Amino acid sequence: MLTSVEAIDQCEVITLGLEDDATVIHRDDAPGLAVLRPDVPLAPSVVAEFQTGVPRLQAEVAVAGFPYGNVLTTPALTFGTLADIRGLNGEEEVKRLALVAQPGDAGGPVYDNSGAVLGMLLPKVANNGQTLPPEVSFSLDAGEIVASVQGAGVDLHTTNSVAYMTPEALTLMAADMTVLVSCWDD
Rank of each mutant, 00 (worst) to 15 (best):
E144S: 12
S114D: 04
E168I: 07
T158C: 07
S4L: 04
R96D: 01
N160I: 03
Q102S: 13
A152N: 07
L132P: 00
E19K: 15
S139V: 06
G69N: 03
T178H: 08
K95F: 13
N113R: 11
V100F: 05
Q58A: 15
T73N: 11
C11L: 02
F66H: 13
V149S: 02
W184I: 03
G108Q: 02
K124V: 11
D29V: 15
A152G: 15
P38A: 14
Y68P: 00
E135P: 01
L118R: 08
A126R: 10
M165V: 15
A116E: 05
V149M: 00
A169V: 04
M165H: 09
Q130S: 10
C183S: 05
P31H: 06
Q102Y: 15
E91I: 03
V61K: 06
I8N: 04
E144L: 05
M120E: 03
L33E: 07
D21I: 03
G129V: 10
A62E: 09
V40H: 07
N127P: 00
G115D: 09
L88D: 13
L156N: 03
S45C: 00
C183L: 01
V146E: 00
L82T: 12
E60W: 10
P67A: 05
L82D: 11
G65Y: 05
V154M: 00
A147V: 06
V71K: 13
V181G: 06
L2H: 04
V61L: 08
V179S: 01
G129N: 04
P41T: 10
A34S: 12
D112N: 15
R96H: 09
T81G: 01
V110W: 02
V5I: 09
P55N: 07
T131P: 04
G53V: 13
T166N: 03
P167H: 01
